[in-house]
Nucleic acid binder design. Structure first.
Lengths: 152, 152
DNA sequence: ATAATTATTATAATCATTACAAAGTAGAAA
DNA sequence: TTTCTACTTTGTAATGATTATAATAATTAT
């Protein structure tokens, strides 16, 4: 257990969110999956084991609520589904095209760090940045597993 | 007419794409809308005026084809729909929460410019970055139009 | 011209997300 | 405790973007 329930409860209340059981559980799941950038489905499937009556709508509502209140941050990277991050500190992401893993990236850049307030004169409210490519680990294994010696 | 048909035709052929009428028209539309970051729907609706038999599927197929061949770049920024950019030079975007306009942003950053080949040891294939906020113009007009003096 | 390949079209299917209304829950007022 | 009210959760249906599929059309090679 990385973070205990009382701390999570306080985090909710600080943001003016009533700490219901479902909300606590969603937040708990996110806090225990800091590196996974979970999708709505991932949160739902996992919590369903503990809360068999849980509704997918509740997970959507809860995550949207958290997002609005700045309790979590959203990661749009695959284009097909939203992902959520317990870590709200400014950071970027790297999506590996092979293993599908999403890796946190810290850049020493005033924009990436959220230090700059404007860009080209426009007021910045959110900064999003991501890379797509092949992660260190998959790249290393590329030579190891030949792609097959089918034809030619 | 920013770019003429022959140049566009050559661009298609260079990338190994057969220059059909529909493909040329889609590419022409993108080249004439460099600053609009059009959605599939925008391309479809506009071209339908010239090509009444055009299918939405063709626009999807064509844009995906262009994307794979690196003829255009994709912009995922609103989260609800894909947008396309004739300009494949590395650049970032700014989405104004008020007017909805997407503005091109050039950052003097090795990552943003696509100069760096790796980040944290991972091989970079694509770089995506965007800001959300209030654009210069909308911000200026904020004071001008009070939001109403309803209650309180 | 005929066959083979590729492109386009139309329709249906899919998938993530949102809308909506019913049912449940918790706390305040009586 | 009971009742009232507001908010939460739930389940189902609707939406909207995108993809799959199969039929038709056009192009290229034989």
């Amino acid at each position: 257990m990385i973070t205990n329930m009382n701390i999570l409860k306080n985090r909710l209340m600080e943001k003016g969110i009533k700490p219901t059981f479902q909300r606590l559980k969603v937040l708990e799941y996110l806090s225990n999956n800091l590196k996974n950038h979970p999708t709505v489905e991932m949160v739902y499937e996992e919590l369903l084991k503990e809360i068999p009556t849980l509704s997918l709508t509740t997970v959507y509502n809860t995550l949207n609520n958290f997002l609005e209140k700045g309790l979590v941050s959203g990661v749009i990277i695959t284009g097909t589904e939203a992902r959520y991050d317990f870590d709200t500190k400014y950071h970027h992401h790297f999506l590996c095209k092979i293993c599908g893993k999403i890796i946190d990236i810290d850049l020493k850049c005033g924009y990436a760090l959220g230090e700059k307030r404007t860009v080209s004169g426009h007021r910045i409210d959110e900064v999003h940045g991501y890379f797509k490519g092949i992660c260190k680990n998959c790249y290393k294994n590329l030579g190891t597993k030949p792609k097959g010696h089918s034809s030619s």
